[in-house]
């Protein structure tokens, strides 16, 4: 726990590292030891060759109909993109599933992790133990979590339906992942279970920054718990909320493994999201088309992140 405070402070400063080129070079010696330029070199070489160049290469693929192995391919210009925009129901379905998934995960993961953090903010023995327990799912692999929850949701033998049957609430039984209209929400619930503990830790760190005397004087004034939360905790924990919401949003687009584990490979349409759709294109040797999809994917993430930042900033300015 002691480290997280230090580490958490880092991004605030490095929000956007925009380098400012110097107008004029300072006269005199450059004080950087020349050997220092060798240190980032291995990282830069690996990163440029295996990460940056493939990213730009993807743009080149996206305007072709390349299948991944033929020597020949055609330049189709913006053809892939116009197909995605107008004629690809699978892509559109995956986009809507992904947005539904994201909304549900962001709302519930944020609220539940905040509630748990408020309850566990004090560093008592039991709080520390419970935090460790709640954090545990985060370290499991997505495939493991997917298998655990496939059984929880199993319509015939699963934990939920068995438990409901045992207490006589058979009317509430569901086919869960078999119900195409709701399946994506049940996977969203699993995602929340998976990562609430991780977000709770960020909130605990944020809550512990709030000075205790604020609550003491509110107590003296006779303010209720709810009023204290509304007027002290909520506004002052806003920086942590911004981190949690931003991270959860991006994470919802990266839920690739969980979807493959719960929805099959390739997932059925009711559980398909953007990342699994792109993978399916790759698996079907539609390299050019999938590359175009992945560019649209990046744009969608950038757009959603931007909108959501605006919304958070707006909400906080009115709080």
């Amino acid at each position: 726990m002691t480290n997280s405070g230090i580490l958490l402070d880092a991004p605030a400063r490095d929000e956007s590292p925009t380098p400012v080129p110097p107008r004029r070079r300072r006269s005199g010696v450059n004080r950087t030891h020349p050997a220092l330029f060798l240190f980032p070199l291995p990282a830069l070489v690996l990163y440029v060759v295996f990460f940056a160049m493939p990213t730009f290469e993807g743009v080149r693929y996206s305007v072709t109909d390349w299948d991944g192995f033929s020597a020949e391919y055609n330049n189709v210009g913006a053809g892939n993109f116009s197909t995605i925009a107008t004629a690809d129901d699978l892509f559109r379905g995956a986009l809507f599933n992904n947005l539904k998934f994201m909304l549900v995960v962001v709302v519930f993961q944020t609220l539940i992790s905040l509630a748990l953090a408020v309850f566990l903010v004090r560093n008592s023995r039991s709080s520390i133990l419970l935090r460790a327990l709640y954090f545990l799912p985060t370290i499991l692999s997505s495939v493991s979590v997917a298998f655990i929850w496939k059984f929880v949701y199993d319509p015939n033998f699963g934990l939920i339906n068995t438990a409901l049957g045992a207490v006589g609430l058979d009317g509430l039984k569901s086919s869960f992942l078999g119900d195409d209209g709701k399946a994506i929400f049940f996977v969203a619930a699993t995602q929340v279970w998976f990562h609430v503990g991780q977000m709770m830790v960020i909130y605990v760190a944020g809550l512990q920054q709030i000075p205790a005397d604020l609550y003491e004087s509110a107590d003296v004034d006779g303010a209720s718990r709810w009023r204290q939360f509304r007027h002290i905790t909520w506004p002052l924990v806003a920086p942590a909320s911004a981190i949690v919401i931003a991270y959860t949003t991006v994470q919802s687009f990266k839920a690739f493994d969980l979807i493959l584990g719960m929805g099959g490979n390739p997932p059925k349409p009711s559980l398909d999201i953007l990342s699994t759709r792109i993978y399916a294109g790759f698996a079907n040797s539609q390299f050019g088309y999938a590359a175009a999809e992945s560019i649209v994917f990046m744009v969608v993430i950038a757009l959603v992140t931007w909108l959501q930042r605006r919304a958070v900033a707006l909400a906080q300015s009115q709080a």
Partner: peptide, 26 residues
Amino acid sequence: GHLIYGFIVLGMAVPAQANMIPQYVL
């Protein structure tokens, strides 16, 4: 130093599915 940092850290904004296909080819 800022430039090198910004360039490398920019990679965090690129989702894996965005460059996995060219990476596979390479």
